[in-house]
Design a protein around this nucleic acid. Structure first.
Length: 449
DNA sequence: TCTGGGGTCCTAGGACCC
DNA sequence: TCTGGGGTCCTAGGACCC
């Protein structure tokens, strides 16, 4: 048995904890550069605002409907997420953190009434963090997801489902008739694993509700679509095909990409951005104890604008796997040099690390650095740290973890091809951008009905 | 004027080998 | 006149997720 605990409108809820005046109002949290809506309050959803809706298309609602657009504050959301996850983990013996606002909990061995227990955990999360959440319970992960959808929708739209399923919904505890009517009342597109494409293909075949999907023959689903959708059908029928991943494997790719606030033409500015992306990606790489064998860099113009289009990527192999920001940044800049063409308005760039392997494994196989004896305490620490890339990077990460992200940065003399009098212009401009609103401490409501 | 930033998995098809 | 078959590896692209 599985539970899925999911924070409602998570980013908006985080903002509301610190600004209760936002309660009851239509609020959206906006992506990088305030480009589009990535979280919406219920009131904003009621205005018809979609996920990913471009801000410039909904901005008029500021005046017309009192809509509030907030610049995203991901550090805050990460911190709130940690607190929510640790409280959610009290629901059962194992937890898989699936995203910033969702975690699956395995419920094997949990005694007593699951719904009562889930309601208690929900109240505790609300009381201790201020985040409202929905909890779905089911015999498979896909059914737990579906139960979560029902729990949240029953609360948000009274009448859509029986009121008793609001906030907490246990699909394992329903009569067959009750289950069937819930599945019949739910659009097939709400199923985890059915997106826009497959959803419309299913509807064309008359498969409109979740119930219809459960009635399909799994092996025919496999023939027409894939094993992935076949598993989804099995899971909806109560046959568990997915288990809990409590220790997710290290990432196989690590990316850092951004859209620019305004078009960038200059190679020097691109180089500055790419170099920053490489450093950030390297930090993530070291945080999971891995090395990368290849560095991909891409630059592209905006497909939304009617300007000459250019999009190109380049994969730069490293001489040997590395997690050293300097080597990775150098490779990324070499890649940039290979693909840069003057005269285009670049809208986005990014760095991806690939061919990722475990640092300990590769060190054992390829390197002898780990075998060199440590110097006497206090002797030669500086020079040795500077010679040993892994120590230098570890020191860098430790400083930035302790005192904040940008406390210590790499100096670079590799931007020689920069054509800009001020190669940092772009990043500084990003930092200067004043957010539309900033989070202020108003009041920390510990208990809210 | 203005359209996010991450990830995963699966499949088809080509290259290559024996 | 005739043009194998099977296996593996790699890559690009498509679908999905939040």
């Amino acid at each position: 048995m599985f539970a899925l605990v999911d924070g409602n409108n998570f980013y908006v809820s985080c903002e509301r904890v610190f600004r209760p005046s936002l309660l009851g109002r239509p609020v959206v949290v906006l992506s990088n550069n305030d480009g589009c809506a990535i979280a919406r309050s219920n009131e904003a959803k009621d205005l018809g605002i979609r996920m990913g809706h471009p801000w410039h298309e909904i901005r008029h609602l500021e005046d017309e409907a009192g809509l509030i657009g907030l610049s995203a504050n991901f550090e805050l959301y990460g911190d709130m997420s940690d607190r929510m996850m640790s409280l959610a983990s009290g629901l059962g013996p194992e937890q898989e953190i699936y995203s910033i606002d969702e975690s699956f909990i395995a419920l094997q061995g949990v005694k007593g009434d699951l719904v009562d227990r889930a309601r208690a955990v929900r109240s505790r999360i609300l009381a201790w963090t201020g985040i409202p959440c929905g909890i779905g319970i089911g015999p498979t992960k896909t059914l737990a997801k579906l139960a979560n959808h029902i729990a949240k929708t029953a609360e948000r739209k009274p009448g859509s489902y029986p009121a008793k399923f609001a906030q907490v919904c246990n699909l394992a505890n329903t009569t067959p008739d009750e289950l069937q009517s819930l599945l019949r009342a739910t659009d097939v597109g709400e199923v985890w694993g059915v997106g826009g494409r497959i959803g419309s293909q299913l509807r064309d075949l008359g498969v409109k509700t979740v119930w219809d999907l459960t009635q399909m023959e799994p092996h025919l689903v496999r023939q027409r679509w894939s094993v992935v959708l076949e598993r989804t059908v099995q899971e909806l029928r109560g046959v568990a095909c997915m288990s809990l991943d409590d220790a997710p494997p290290p990432k196989q790719q690590i990316a850092c990409t951004r859209s620019f606030g305004s078009a960038v033409r200059d190679q020097g500015q691109l180089a500055q951005a790419v170099s920053e992306f490489a450093v950030r990606a390297s930090e993530k790489l070291r945080a999971q104890g891995s090395l990368a064998g290849e560095v991909l860099v891409f630059i592209r113009t905006s497909p939304f604008r009617k300007v000459p289009q250019y999009s190109k990527s380049h994969v730069q192999p490293l001489v040997r796997p590395s997690a050293d920001s300097r080597q990775i940044a150098t490779a990324a800049l070499q890649g940039l040099k290979a693909i840069y063409r003057p005269g285009f308005d670049y809208a986005k760039a990014g760095v991806m690390l690939m061919d990722i392997s475990s640092a300990s494994q590769v060190q054992g196989e390829l390197c002898f650095e780990g075998l060199v004896e440590d110097p006497e305490p206090g002797v030669q620490q500086g020079p040795r740290a500077a010679r040993d890339p892994s120590r230098l990077m570890a020191a860098l990460d430790a400083v930035n973890l302790r005192w904040g992200k940008h406390t210590m940065k790499l100096g670079s003399n590799r931007l020689a091809h920069s054509q800009s009098p001020s190669p940092k212009a772009w990043m500084m401009k990003q930092e200067r951008r004043s957010p539309r609103y900033t989070t202020q401490w108003e009041e920390m409501p510990l208990v809210r009905a």
